[in-house]
Design a protein around this nucleic acid. Structure first.
Lengths: 187, 187
DNA sequence: ATGATTTTTTATCATTTGGTAAAACCCGGT
DNA sequence: ACCGGGTTTTACCAAATGATAAAAAATCAT
């Protein structure tokens, strides 16, 4: 709870009323390793705060999986495609370890955004970080080859590297596991 | 002006006061084909509304150019990395035709967001669209090869296809112009 | 510890894409 | 019409990545 509010306050300073509103009815849920937090096709009803563990957002095409992003530490995340529009999610969320998330429902978030200007500011800031991060990823995918992307990932996500399987890392980088293995062997 | 407000209202319905605030001091600027609207390294001071023409956001690495996105029609855009943080832009904006944009300064946008809740909602919605669009692009880059990405682009951006050079399209797809030419020849 | 299952590495060959160069094409200015 | 500059296509070879298969290593449950 403290972590959650601290995280929110890093985005935008919140009134007591807003903070209370966010915490009111905040539910925690724990998933075991490998469990789905959200399945493809389901509507993403929540904004998530990951308080413990590791998760991935991914999708399948044919028999291949592609990973959009990993989440660990104290971060806010969601499948915004689905959360914002309340349409079925093209992506799934899977726990890669025992993972605890706090849930803020879409309905409550909408209410709070309407009621408290600073919650809307918080939401806006969260989305701006997401937009910027996604844009950066696109840059990297355009300008860097697989080897460079791998090196970059190691540099930037050193902390979670050991917790991610090679297969998952390859799915994130957009290459086959064999290619990634080859890249690592070359060094 | 009308187009601008209509565009804004599609994101979020605005009060008269907010609409007036947005329009007050709104400046239009026209760029010739090939002119820079923003250079790499400059701070992006504006949220842009493109009312006429065609523009690209891109960057260079070595002697290659990579294109993040094209803009035409009545759309709001900016280099949000820079606009939001007011840090130097990693990207440039270039007019691909004679292009007219309306400028809303960062300072004014900040003021209006603070003053009018509905402007903040508008801004939030703009960012959510950006985040979703970027995410979709990442999906495509992960799951589709160059040929599929080309086909997809033709399908989705049919209207501006004839106005974009092959070189620019290749830079957007993340392949060389020669590869794109080859892909087109195969069909 | 043992065996079963999963993950990672290695190998081989096919396909895709890049790099370089040159030719063909298109278009605007004179 | 002709020139000149830019754009697009074609060709050739090299490098990167994918597909498939199998071996090796690591992990897990009993």
């Amino acid at each position: 709870m403290t972590d959650f509010l601290e995280c929110c306050n890093r985005y935008a300073p919140l009134d007591k009323a807003s903070a209370d509103g966010l915490c009111l009815g905040l539910k925690a849920k724990t998933y075991k390793k490998g469990e789905y937090i959200l399945r493809e096709g389901e509507v993403c009803k929540y904004l998530y705060f990951l308080s413990k563990g590791l998760a991935k957002i991914s999708f399948e095409k044919g028999d291949k999986e592609f990973i959009m992003r990993f989440f660990s530490g104290n971060v806010l995340f969601s499948v915004f495609e689905s959360f914002i529009t309340q349409a079925p999610s093209p992506y799934r969320i899977v726990a890669l370890e025992e993972t605890t998330v706090m849930l803020i429902s879409h309905r409550r978030m909408e209410e709070l955004c309407k009621k408290h200007h600073d919650v809307e500011t918080l939401f806006r800031k969260v989305l701006s970080i997401v937009a910027i991060r996604m844009t950066k990823r696109i840059s990297e995918m355009l300008e860097e080859n697989a080897t460079e992307r791998y090196t970059q990932f190691v540099k930037e996500h050193h902390s979670i590297l050991q917790r991610i399987s090679l297969g998952d890392l390859a799915s994130y980088l957009g290459i086959t596991q064999q290619s990634l293995s080859r890249i690592r062997a070359k060094k």
